[in-house]
């Protein structure tokens, strides 16, 4: 199946000389949730801006559902919805008026029943006659989402959708995003909350200093790059790690009651089993064990810092 978004050799250099994107190529699959991670200034918003028509690319091409976003911008944009990072709203307008405007802007005939459903889904129906300036930050964020959904887009960009949003609303939004995906909407989100990507994304892309460092299926990424830790609770405390276990490079925790073994989830096939067998052979008894896998955040930090060191 052809990707719903195909980005090829995309570069963006601003008039100031800042190279925001350097030869980025990326394909987004139809119906997936794709999380784009990166530190501030990495180029995430520029990338989204180009796809949505807000920023002019310096070179390269972007196809949205087969339509070039520059040459055939009308058909490309027709399919895209955008929730920008900033809470930019018509403060003096009502929720209903601004959502109606958005639907019209994207070339759809008025459909009050559909808009009512969007507002109900976002718990905004009771606020439809309120001016946006009277709403809380969380409600304004919902209005931004309602505007983006007002024309039933096939592709939805969420640029930091849950920034500054309380936990309850964040969970509501995650549920909403999943529901949209279930309806066939392709979702591309940028976020600083790594757990958000870890929880929701099908695939993850990491961008840093305008370069796409990797794109990977989230589960595969975590399996490939995730560090695992095995902690063994000992029956009797130790003062030093036995020499027979030297090859596993174990760490003895203060107090001598815990041994910790760090290993690469991919590279160390059989390492744990061999360790446990060896411990039994030398009569070292443990009463409990637990494993811990590194989070996407750990992976992200290690990738970005490794890239930074590589360039410095």
């Amino acid at each position: 199946m052809s990707p719903i978004i195909a980005i090829t050799n995309l570069t963006k250099t601003y008039a100031s000389g800042l190279a925001a994107l350097k030869n980025v190529s990326l394909s987004i699959n139809r119906g997936e949730i794709f999380a784009l991670l990166g530190p501030n200034g990495a180029g995430k918003t520029t990338l989204i801006g180009i796809v949505c028509g807000i920023v002019n690319p310096s070179s390269g091409t972007v196809l949205a559902d087969g339509h070039d976003v520059v040459r055939d911008y009308r058909n490309a944009r027709y399919k895209i919805g955008l929730v920008p990072q900033e809470l930019t709203t018509d403060a003096f307008e009502t929720v209903w008026a601004t959502v109606k405007l958005s639907r019209g802007l994207f070339g759809r005939a008025p459909d009050e029943a559909y808009l009512e459903q969007v507002l109900r889904d976002l718990s905004l129906w009771d606020k439809r006659h309120d001016k946006i300036m009277t709403l809380s930050g969380g409600m304004k964020r919902r209005v931004m989402i309602a505007k983006a959904l007002s024309h039933a887009p096939d592709i939805l960009f969420l640029d930091e959708p849950t920034a500054g949003v309380d936990v309850e609303l964040r969970r509501d939004m995650w549920a909403m995003v999943r529901a949209l995906r279930d309806k066939g909407v392709t979702i591309i989100l940028t976020t600083h909350y790594i757990e958000e990507a870890e929880d929701m994304a099908d695939r993850v892309g990491v961008i840093n200093k305008g370069e796409l460092i990797l794109v990977e299926d989230k589960a595969v990424l975590m399996a490939k790059l995730g560090q695992k830790q095995l902690t063994l609770q000992l029956a009797q405390p130790l003062s030093v790690v036995p020499s027979e276990l030297a090859e596993w490079k174990l760490a003895l925790k203060p107090g001598g009651h815990e041994l910790e073994y760090s290993f690469d989830a991919k590279a160390e096939h059989g390492g744990v089993a061999a360790l446990l067998k060896r411990m039994t052979e030398i009569g070292l008894v443990f009463t409990d064990l637990r494993t811990q896998q590194s989070s996407l955040e750990d992976i992200f930090v290690s990738l970005v810092s490794a890239k930074g060191q590589g360039q410095s």
Binding site: C52, I54, R77, L82, T88, L105
Partner: peptide, 11 residues
């Protein structure tokens, strides 16, 4: 207000 993003991203 920044709402121009919507105009620029509309078809």
């Amino acid at each position: 207000t920044g709402t121009i993003y919507e105009l620029l991203s509309a078809p």
